[in-house]
Design a protein around this nucleic acid. Structure first.
Length: 272
DNA sequence: CACCATGTTAGGAG
DNA sequence: ACTCCTAACATGGT
């Protein structure tokens, strides 16, 4: 799924595809996609999705926002906020694609929220609350807010494994299972290391590499639609999804372990 | 059928 | 208080 880079691409797509002309239509194809808040649970669906989206029609987008993996737009006195869940993405097309959950239309072809697994969601909130809702319960954005070594040190504490901590949105917003693996590989840090055992130098390397890694992925994806590894696209990552393949740096076979219920990919030789 | 999946979260055990 | 694990959510792919 979408981690911070995919959310940023989606934000730019909204901006590019919808522009700043008024909405002709905002329609929930799957009524349960509209939630009372940005929650992955369908049971948090609003009672009246059409009524929640109706105020958008006739108003024009004025701002496109993102924090961590959440993004959205402001139009009139409302904001539409989106979380792509595990399998969500935006598509612009004249006809409804399979698994389309929501349609937004200004003056071009409709923009569809497509999401096979339905962990994605949208929420319509008052415009003035857009920013606070995007940030609610989350730490600083892993890309946009200058990530200093001191700032990261303050957040990476305790006995938790560093990879688990990096993926904790309340500490730092935007990093998921793939980017955590890639960042720690480039920083040459063992993903199992306890935060409190990290040296200042290791923390400094993570702080420097995190925004660089995320920015590089954004630059690489900006060209087109989000393509997931599981969609049959090529694996562009250094270690993620490469169990048993040679480390690109030292050729040692990449190993896997499980942390927090997720698969971690790492090089046992480079990452110590 | 079994197991896996770029996310989040509640509940329980130590 | 902290940390870890599991199950759930919903769905498709291998």
């Amino acid at each position: 799924m979408p981690e911070l880079p995919e959310a940023e691409i989606a934000r730019r797509q909204l901006q590019r595809w919808l522009g700043t002309t008024p909405f002709r239509e905002a329609r929930a194809i799957d009524p349960a996609v509209v939630r009372t808040h940005l929650s992955s649970k369908p049971s948090d669906a609003v009672a009246d999705p059409a009524g929640a989206l109706a105020p958008l029609v006739g108003t024009a987008p004025t701002a496109f926002l993102r924090h961590g993996k959440r993004f959205g737009l402001v139009a009139g006195d409302r904001a539409v906020l989106v979380h792509l869940g595990m399998s969500g993405k935006l598509v612009q097309a004249a006809e409804k694609p399979p698994y389309a959950r929501l349609a937004l239309v200004t003056d071009g072809d409709p923009v569809w929220l497509v999401d096979r697994r339905r962990f994605g969601c949208v929420s319509v909130v008052p415009a003035e609350e857009a920013d606070s809702v995007l940030r609610e319960g989350h730490g600083p954005d892993a890309l946009d807010e200058a990530l200093s070594a001191d700032g990261l040190r303050a957040v990476l504490k305790g006995g938790r494994a560093v990879k688990v901590a990096l993926m904790d949105q309340a500490l730092l917003a935007g990093i998921g299972n793939i980017q955590a693996a890639e960042i720690l590989f480039r920083a040459r840090v063992d993903p199992r290391a306890a935060c409190k055992a990290l040296t200042d130098e290791q923390v400094a390397r993570i702080a420097a590499i995190t925004p660089a890694q995320l920015q590089e992925v954004i630059d690489g994806e900006d060209a087109g639609e989000i393509v997931y590894v599981t969609d049959g696209g090529p694996n562009v990552f250094a270690v993620y999804g490469r169990e048993g393949e040679p480390c690109p740096s030292c050729a040692t076979p990449i190993e896997t372990t499980t942390q927090g219920g997720r698969t971690t990919y790492w090089c046992p030789s480079c990452q110590r």
